[in-house]
Design a protein around this nucleic acid. Structure first.
Lengths: 171, 171
DNA sequence: AATATAATTCATTTTGAATTGAAATCCATC
DNA sequence: GATGGATTTCAATTCAAAATGAATTATATT
């Protein structure tokens, strides 16, 4: 007893362990932990859940649930289906259980913008190095800095290869 | 002009681009951005720098610089050498310029604890599933949950392979 | 069409991590 | 071994990201 963190009233042991796991995963990937709670709860449920069911099982406001569900849907991690009519809810939510695609989407979400930036950054660095040489020259120092800039560029190029490679590993 | 963010008084274009790049990298890996500033400045300098030089080039308190340097040294990203006597400083600091090892250390710093946790978590999940079946039985639902738990376990196992693989790619 | 309930939006609040700053400690030089 | 500057420590502060909740909008049911 009392291993994890937030109490989360209505979760059984199975559910709360799974939720905790996905909370950690989301945080590892720099996403809000509420996303992990929502996704984890869906993952631990044999049936698709309604908004209201999520709300009553987790200690999260409607606002957070709404935002979380939207983000997870946009990521393709959760799918919504029309709720069987008669019950109040509009939709029911299920997890995309293919973990590899989930992780790969989450990863790319962070890596792609980083790499995009990197590319222009390298250009700026090279420009700065070129422009700099004119005034105070100190050849050995300049060579060191050139070497470092070159290293960065090589790294940047390798990173571009990187991403598809990760995608492949995750397959 | 004015592409980046923090002004950082005394940095030239070359330095501030490199600093910005490492700040982004640190943040991608969930480390404080001050670490990126310090490492970036060292990386952009042809000579090893003293504590005081770092302080005067960056807009950071002594406290942050001290903590940042310590963390970077612990990570093996920065090395310290005795400062040539006569100048006030005790030590001078240089970057470990092998980016691959830097990134791999930073990555592992986050991945390893996550994976370690994951392992016990899987055990707890299996225990919970086993203990649960007795009271309210719904075989198809149980089978679904079993399937999901199995998927998690498989994923966990693959993740363990994952880490050395990343290390290999970074080589 | 009207009503009641579900879901979303977004300004405000909370929370946790990063940063600061001032006091304590360390170390080289005298 | 005493002095003065260099560095570290850590409680208090700041800051950004996440969560809330009340007002709004959308949708189902009658």
């Amino acid at each position: 007893m009392s291993a994890g963190e937030g109490a989360d009233a209505g979760l059984n042991a199975f559910e709360s362990e799974i939720v905790a796991g996905f909370v950690d995963l989301m945080q590892l990937l720099g996403m809000p932990k509420s996303y992990g709670e929502i996704y984890g709860l869906l993952y631990a449920s044999s049936e698709a859940l309604t908004f209201a069911q999520i709300e009553q099982k987790l200690t999260l406001s409607k606002g957070s649930i709404s935002q979380g569900l939207r983000a997870l849907r946009d990521l393709g991690a959760v799918t919504a289906a029309a709720a069987p009519s008669g019950m109040g809810a509009r939709e029911v939510f299920s997890p995309q259980t293919e973990l590899r695609s989930l992780v790969s989407v989450l990863l790319q979400e962070r890596l792609v913008p980083y790499l995009r930036n990197g590319k222009q950054r390298i250009a700026a660095i090279e420009a700065a190095l070129g422009g700099q040489g004119s005034s105070d020259d100190d050849p050995p120092a300049q060579r060191t800095l050139h070497g470092r800039a070159t290293k960065l560029k090589a790294w940047q190029k390798r990173s571009a290869t990187f991403l598809p490679l990760i995608a492949k590993i995750l397959r």
